[in-house]
């Protein structure tokens, strides 16, 4: 559930108010969005993905955290790189490569059959990435 709107980071763009599919936030009188209906939060992390300054934290739990919980402690979350971690992983934000480019993954039993020209085990970076990665081979046909 959504646990944190960092007033230090928030720039008052209200993007979270707009994108939350279950309408959890209200615009705050001081410009900082308010978690008005935490009960309606479905823990989908979408607000985190869209927040341009990583001011939000959605805990992985589906029940509210107590006030003194580590998952509500902003300095701890920032220190452990958990603020903005979803946005970083999907590669949203200036200068980042979209995570979708890397989303090759292992071929899995039961998944859509691969095209005849692809490999079964692929951990390949896109052409525009310098990251060295292994190229395990094994054709499907």
């Amino acid at each position: 559930m959504i646990e944190l709107v960092s007033s230090q980071r928030c720039i008052g763009c209200d993007k979270c108010v707009h994108v939350c599919p279950t309408n959890v936030f209200d615009r705050g009188a001081d410009g900082i969005p308010v978690i008005a209906r935490q009960d309606d939060c479905q823990t989908c992390f979408m607000c985190e993905a869209y927040c341009p300054v990583d001011a939000l934290f959605v805990a992985p739990t589906t029940h509210p955290q107590p006030a003194d919980a580590p998952l509500r402690d902003e300095s701890r979350l920032a220190g452990s790189d958990l603020l903005g971690s979803y946005r970083a992983r999907i590669g949203w934000g200036r200068g980042r490569t979209p995570g979708a480019r890397f989303a090759v993954g292992p071929e899995l039993p039961g998944a859509t059959p691969a095209t005849p020209t692809t490999t079964t085990l692929t951990a390949t970076a896109p052409a525009d990435s310098a990251t060295p990665t292994p190229h395990p081979k094994g054709t499907t046909q």
Binding site: M46, G99, A103, V104, T115, T118, T119, T122, T124
Partner: peptide, 22 residues
């Protein structure tokens, strides 16, 4: 312009979609 991943031959693999990007 959807950024599909590419295999080692440079071919796009179009059999999965990342939700937020899609």
């Amino acid at each position: 312009g959807y950024p599909f991943p590419r295999d080692e031959h440079g071919n796009e693999r179009r059999s999965s979609l990342q939700g937020p990007e899609y």
